[in-house]
Design a binder for these strands. Structure first.
Length: 416
DNA sequence: TGGGGTTAT
DNA sequence: ATAACCC
């Protein structure tokens, strides 16, 4: 069962770290990254003073009047640094899966096996753990599962060290026998530390979660439905009759989340490779005329075309997403329409993007009119454009393998 | 609540 | 096309 060794790496307050690298003079000051009216993340100087992630700007400045805010609505610097991290990890080991911009899973099973054999050949029997052991559990060097995980902790330390010396970023790592456990354990010692989980402490780790929604994979909706059934804790979910759960959530979800509640997760580390979509969005208080919509969409389109051009692949699908104001329900009621990109336009993605803007803007406005009757009043609070279904150029080596090593250094273009 | 992403149905 | 999940 527990044959694999998985590392989860989680950068510390990633956007704030990137901003501190961009503005070294801010490094020892309380710093927050702002998007619209929110402080989406902040450095540890700010956290000491009570600022929390996703706090409103108003509350944050009340907590910490000296707080310095930088605007982080343009994700370009974070996205670029994020891929540098994934690329670096990929040098150690091909199995790297991204989760958001600031987390990566690495399946280090094969690297561990190699080191284990080297160790056995050199006749050395002493191995030393790097970082913390969850629950302070005693290590048994006779237990090869323990030894593999200890070697995993040493590899994770090397990964964090490489990320720090080569990119200047700190982060946490968790090492365990599957992705779920590696992710859960990585947060136990917080900034810039790492923790390994030995199998005997698995149940204590999952039971340390105070609510089922803390289990990665059980989100808001599922947690609400489980509450209806009286299931609130990990214990409740473990003990709940499987047949009833399957009828309520469907066999697939029921079986998966019940296994998660025991700390079981056989999902593989799936190499992410290059992105499968490129999107750009903007939110606002109000957008209510077609002219305004067209202007906003054009802005989104310009920066997206620049990104696609740098990527080198050609998208086949374009999508427009919007959110309409609704006083009732604070909810996230988004709708979208998508269509194939007209085939005669596709070849132009390899070149200057300026002559693509006008025809694609026409396509997007048609999609807009499929959702909104422009003769009636409307009130939008978000617009988003997405390109997906990306295809490699014929016979050019820009595919998933060449991706990471490619062109990290085109001139920085017309971002917004 | 922001500005992204992915997979399953 | 939407709905769920992740950050």
């Amino acid at each position: 069962a527990g044959r694999r060794v998985i590392a989860h790496l989680d950068l510390d307050c990633f956007y704030a770290q990137v901003e501190m690298i961009r503005h070294p003079e801010l490094t020892d000051k309380p710093l927050g990254v702002q998007q619209k009216n929110l402080v989406v993340t902040c450095n540890y100087e700010a956290r000491k003073r009570g600022v929390k992630k996703l706090m409103s700007v108003k509350d944050a400045k009340e907590m910490c009047p000296q707080l310095i805010l930088v605007n982080g609505e343009d994700l370009t610097p974070y996205r670029e640094m994020s891929y540098k991290v994934t690329e670096l990890l990929g040098e150690f080991c091909p199995l790297v899966e991204r989760l958001g911009f600031d987390e990566n899973f690495v399946d280090i099973t094969e690297v561990v096996e190699k080191r284990l054999k080297e160790l056995q050949q050199s006749g050395c029997s002493g191995v030393c753990v790097s970082g913390h052991v969850y629950n302070n559990q005693a290590i048994d060097l006779q237990d090869t599962t323990h030894v593999r995980l200890i070697i995993g902790s040493q590899i994770a330390e090397e990964l964090r060290e490489a990320v720090c010396t080569r990119l200047g970023l700190t982060g946490c790592a968790g090492i365990a026998s599957n992705k779920l456990l590696a992710k859960l354990v990585s947060g136990t010692f917080k900034p810039n530390q790492q923790t390994v989980l030995l199998p005997e402490s698995c149940q204590e780790l999952v039971h340390s979660l105070d609510h089922i929604q803390k289990v990665p994979g059980i989100g808001y909706k599922t947690a609400k439905r489980l509450e209806t059934l009286g299931v609130r804790s990990v214990c409740d979910l473990q003990a709940f009759p499987a047949a009833v759960l399957e009828k309520e959530l469907g066999v697939s979800i029921a079986q998966r989340i019940q296994k998660l509640s025991y700390g079981e997760d056989d999902s593989p580390v799936t190499p992410s490779g290059p992105p499968q979509s490129f999107s750009d969005e903007d939110s606002f208080k109000k957008c209510s005329s077609e002219v305004e919509v067209k202007e906003k969409i054009e802005q989104l389109l310009r920066s997206l075309l620049d990104r696609i051009y740098r990527d080198g692949r050609q998208p086949r699908t374009i999508r427009l997403t919007l959110r309409q104001f609704s006083a009732t329900e604070k909810g996230f009621h988004r709708e979208s329409r998508q269509c194939p990109i007209p085939p005669h336009l596709i070849h132009r993605f390899g070149k200057e993007s300026s002559n693509l803007i006008s025809p694609l803007l026409d396509v997007l406005m048609k999609l807009f009119r499929k959702m909104i009757d422009v003769d009636l009043p409307f009130h939008l609070t978000l617009l988003s454009v997405c390109f997906s279904n990306l295809k490699d150029l014929p016979s050019s080596k820009k595919g998933s393998i060449g991706f990471y090593l490619k062109q990290m250094s085109l001139p920085s273009g017309s971002g917004k």
